[in-house]
Design a protein around this nucleic acid. Structure first.
Lengths: 124, 124
DNA sequence: ATATGTGCAAACTGTTTGCACACGA
DNA sequence: TCGTGTGCAAACAGTTTGCACATAT
């Protein structure tokens, strides 16, 4: 990631503007509104590079897709097995440090994923 | 999963006997020591069924593989980005209920995944 | 007897990659 | 110019599935 590219900028912009946790293909469709001839390979390559650079996060929940997150602050992801939505929850920092202390585990680029059923799906 | 099968029993036994978080292929190789002509498809089908029945857990950490866990008690998975190992950490129950209360999120079949660097990899 | 499970292999699908060309530093 | 990024399409790899046969109830 040493050269600028408008493709990468557009991908980042899409990610920063949404609070969902989109897949590569969703991002691809969104970016195509601005850059119609961008290729899916380019999207994957940039998402991979941005993840490696720590500018975005990759989130896996077990639905067969990679999800990406423009919010790199430590937070918990609540994945609803009913509707498949991924929701955010801010973490109390004391819990993070407790995990680190108890486990000798350095959780700098931290993502948490918890699985369950959200309020909406529980009612149905 | 209404009929018994020795294949499924062997798969479950392998999972219950390890504290790692193996992939389908690792389980396949292990079960083949006992049932040499079992097929990989059967392993996948049983893992899928056992997960649906709540007898095992599927854990995704973002390394491109599905991992499976014979321990279905609520616990945190610490995934080390250095060595790829998945380690367990018991969760304080008060934290689980706090997450549930704060978020209206029912985390019964709970898995947590945290990402970071383990003690060993930190030293290198 | 009937429903469910298995083995095998082909198909599927999200992701990666090789190549020729384009663009940024 | 030289290294890096892109578009395209083919390749890849983990997982799923259709089918004929076997096994459990």
């Amino acid at each position: 990631m040493k050269h600028y590219s408008k493709q990468r900028e557009a991908i980042l912009e899409v990610l920063r503007k949404t609070d969902t946790h989109p897949t590569a293909n969703w991002i691809y469709e969104k970016v195509r509104e601005k850059i119609p001839n961008i290729s899916l390979g380019t999207v994957y390559r940039n998402l991979s590079g941005l993840t490696a650079d720590g500018e975005i996060l990759k989130v896996e929940v077990g639905d067969g897709f990679e999800h990406f997150d423009g919010d790199i602050s430590p937070h918990l992801h609540l994945y609803c097995k009913g509707c498949g939505k991924i929701m955010d929850q801010k973490l109390k920092s004391d819990y993070i440090s407790r995990v680190a202390k108890e486990s000798d585990f350095k959780t700098d680029t931290t993502i948490y994923v918890a699985y369950g059923i959200c309020k909406n799906c529980k009612q149905n």
